[in-house]
Design a protein around this nucleic acid. Structure first.
Ligand SMILES: [Mn+2]
Ligand SMILES: [Mn+2]
Ligand SMILES: [Zn+2]
Ligand SMILES: [Zn+2]
Lengths: 113, 113
DNA sequence: ATATATTTGCAACTCAGTTGCATTAACAAT
DNA sequence: ATTGTTAATGCAACTGAGTTGCAAATATAT
């Protein structure tokens, strides 16, 4: 749909709105993001600040997301990455777990001196 | 500070504001929550909807939170619980991980027929 | 009693995200 | 090409959680 998903790290909705300000309306950006998410092109998650982040999917299809990976935010540069990492959650008594969302924070390699 | 932390599951800030509407102003509720969090009485986290949730701490002290536990939201009743469960995150190359936030969704025991 | 610091109420504000509606662009059928 | 139908966009106004500034009220200290 749109090429602005060439980045391999995540980006906030507002950041996209800002960046595309000259090219399209903010409502349009949000609607395109919705469509991209529904069609399995991007996935979204909520950061510790409550903002919505988007990143491109790998191997998801329309209506079926398989993005169970953790996300990592660097406290120094603020960048958010999708981690290609499988985390297993043990069975929990009295709880039937369907989905897992993991948000890590720390320091990325660029910011480690 | 205030007694409304007798619940053992989590509660949203807006829910508290609503519930205390007759007794105090919403600004006051938010400020008390801030203080309670800073003093280690409650901890907060962001739900999948971007809302802020609060739950009482166990063994945290002023300025030092040790709430590394996962949170679970039931898709049916919407209730959010703190899980007394330790999840280990493996080392990840190029990332120095400081904090871990885990949000699970599924079905709680009350809602399993 | 008086001065000082802390807490509260209120209104106005911020800001990410949404909604309604009119306009435009894309697509099909004739 | 012309008309009709559908989907995509722009714009402005709205929503709702959370914040801020400031004045009024309470509490604490001297
Ligand atoms: Mn991701
Ligand atoms: Mn908790
Ligand atoms: Zn970094
Ligand atoms: Zn339930």
């Amino acid at each position: 749909m749109h090429l602005f998903e060439a980045k391999d790290c995540a980006i906030t909705a507002i950041d996209l709105v800002d960046r595309l300000d000259q090219q399209m309306n903010k409502t349009t950006v949000y609607r395109i993001l919705d469509r991209l998410e529904n069609s399995g092109v991007v996935h979204s998650f909520i950061g510790r600040d409550g903002l919505k982040w988007y990143a491109k999917c790998k191997g998801c299809s329309s209506g079926h997301h398989i993005d169970a990976h953790p996300h990592f935010q660097c406290k120094v540069c603020g960048k958010v990455d999708c981690l290609d990492l499988k985390i297993s959650i043990p069975e929990v008594k009295n709880y039937k777990i369907d989905s897992v969302e993991i948000f890590l924070t720390g320091k990325c390699s660029d910011c480690t001196e």
